[in-house]
């Protein structure tokens, strides 16, 4: 699909916590990030036409956890606002669609995650099939290990190597927040010297049951990339959301990334839960903003063993 309207990421900000944000509520974690991103875009709090966020009640340990972060947004007078119980990358997608309808020209998108409120290894087992899988409490690393073993058996990786742990993931308890501002057409050009134009975005899901999937492949990533137009021209940069190191090879193959592509120049392939995907989009956009990339691919994932994948293609003007 070719978008009917030029929409760009014009500003991006994130927290820099490497671990738990001790003593900070989600709203307190979010507030400086929102200040920074709105400053960059030249927007006042509440001025964006649409606001959309991503987060999870289960990480916070309370229902409706996102409602109190509205205090950091400045939702007075009332704002047009929505929320996905997903990584913020999907909030960005919803906001992008809202701008495509013409009902908004600008949007604030943010995500926050405070997994340090619990033990994510336990908490994340609650996202599995509640009848057949969740009662076994398989933690994410255990499921990723099945994928790593399948990759090794298929010859895609060398197999377990103590020096390069295929299960290596991010510190499980990184808290944080990230935000971007989207804008259409001339508004985008006013707000940013080199807007990161969203040339396409798409996301696809796969069956939940691992037994129904080929864990050495990611057809949903490939299909999302096709629909987002990623294969129409080569990209110079890819920001991939890789919760576990062994999944890197799956994504590179699905996205047909060769050695000419700079992968994850931001230096990390994951980040705080519910925020990591939005960070990939933000980092890819920031690289275009500063002229280090002309055409970048950004990827976000959700669910066990890359069940759900989102791909966006961003470009800077020549």
């Amino acid at each position: 699909m070719t978008p009917p309207r030029d929409v760009a990421v014009v500003a991006y900000a994130r927290t820099d916590h490497q671990g738990p944000a001790e003593g900070l509520s989600e709203a307190e974690t979010l507030l400086p990030v929102l200040h920074e991103v709105l400053d960059r875009a030249g927007l006042a709090p509440g001025e964006a036409d649409f606001t959309c966020s991503g987060s999870s009640d289960y990480l916070a340990g309370r229902p409706f956890s996102f409602t109190l972060t509205l205090d950091a947004v400045g939702a007075w007078p009332p704002i047009a606002e929505s929320h996905v119980e997903m990584d913020g990358a999907w909030a960005l997608y919803e906001a992008w669609v809202k701008i495509l309808t013409g009902r908004a020209d600008t949007a604030l998108v943010y995500a926050h995650g405070k997994p340090s409120a619990g033990d994510p290894r336990d908490v994340l087992t609650r996202t599995l099939d509640p009848y057949y899988l969740a009662p076994l409490w398989p933690e994410p690393a255990s499921l990723a290990a099945l994928q790593a073993r399948a990759l090794a058996d298929a010859g895609h990786t060398a197999g377990p190597d103590p020096a390069a742990d295929p299960l290596a993931g991010p510190p499980a308890v990184a808290d944080g927040a990230a935000a971007v501002v989207l804008a259409a057409g001339d508004a985008a050009r006013r707000m940013c010297g080199r807007p990161a134009w969203i040339r396409g975005a798409d996301h696809r899901v796969e069956p939940h049951a691992l037994g129904l999937r080929d864990l050495t492949d990611s057809p949903s990533t490939r299909l999302a990339a096709e629909r987002a137009g990623a294969f129409r021209a080569p990209v110079d940069t890819a920001e991939l959301h890789v919760p576990f190191a062994a999944q890197d090879v799956v994504l590179r193959r699905a996205l047909r990334l060769d050695d000419t592509v700079t992968v994850n120049p931001s230096g990390a392939a994951a980040g705080p839960l519910m925020v990591a995907g939005l960070i990939r989009l933000g980092e890819a956009a920031a690289r275009i903003h500063r002229g280090a990339s002309d055409r970048a691919l950004a990827h976000a994932t959700s669910g066990p063993c890359l069940q759900h994948n989102l791909v966006a293609v961003l470009e800077g003007d020549a």
Binding site: S56, Y58, P63, E85, R126, P207, H208, G303
Partner: peptide, 17 residues
């Protein structure tokens, strides 16, 4: 509404099938 009502986090992943 909140995932706590059923005790399933992000149940859409399981409901995809």
């Amino acid at each position: 509404a909140p995932d706590f009502f059923e005790g399933v986090m992000t149940p859409e992943l399981y409901l995809a099938d």
